[in-house]
Design a protein around this nucleic acid. Sequence first.
DNA 1: TTATGTGCAAAACATTTGCAGGAGT
DNA 2: ACTCCTGCAAATGTTTTGCACATAA
Lengths: 137, 137
Amino acid sequence: MDHLPNMRLTTQRQIILEELAKVTSHPTANEVYDMVRKRLPRIGLGTVYRNLDLMADSGVILKIEVGGTQKRFDATIYPHYHIRCTACGKVDDIDIPVQLHINSAAAAASCYEILGHHIEFSGICRDCQQKKQSSVN
Amino acid sequence: MDHLPNMRLTTQRQIILEELAKVTSHPTANEVYDMVRKRLPRIGLGTVYRNLDLMADSGVILKIEVGGTQKRFDATIYPHYHIRCTACGKVDDIDIPVQLHINSAAAAASCYEILGHHIEFSGICRDCQQKKQSSVN
DNA sequence: TTATGTGCAAAACATTTGCAGGAGT
DNA sequence: ACTCCTGCAAATGTTTTGCACATAA
């Protein structure tokens, strides 16, 4: 999962990581691009993709593949789950104590060598609940 | 989740559903297209996409959004989880009795109105384990 | 008959890649 | 110097869409 060998410390890399660490949202590559571009106007989208993938491979950040069409990235790497608003597409962190037992349960129920799991909840976020509420009235 | 109003019973729809129900794999739209095309050579890929989406919206089939670049479809609609081989990309069903409690845990831990959840395990399938094994020897 | 659905091709997106020049070490 | 990295643009892969014709109801 991690091997940060000959990986140079470039300005682009630093700023991408800094900008990602600033937010608690789970931006898409394109959103990271927009954030970074304010400080590095000439950066290319390809560079953003390349570096996000590299950092995810090295375990420095998390690449989360949830519902929706785009991948999302997360500077928080301790184990946690996500919840996604089906109305606005927003992805939030969620801390719930499920964990652990379920990998061995999966190993018992399959012929797979289990590497990990990811839980994605879906629901309606508070903002969208309120919007629904007020549009009814 | 379901409203099958003026939804016509076309040959294309029937055959797409039949072919999807035949397999326990979780084919991508393109794989369904290939399967269906053997019986309906002139069907368009757009039709396959349109109908898979329609059927998923009506709750007749399941659209599963797991890791990887393509969406996958599943004619099995009772609640169950999936496991994905990180080596070959295959997605299998997996039946484990986690379920239920975790939605209320998520509701307690968030401001969301919880609609559901999906668990995706990742691992190495038996075939790929054996390939690894024999390439080492 | 008429609203819905289909085939086809083009468009829209998200992501990856080739390459010539640029920058860390 | 010598790689590795970047910006740019083009290519790729997946999904969606517009439109004229076809078809289930």
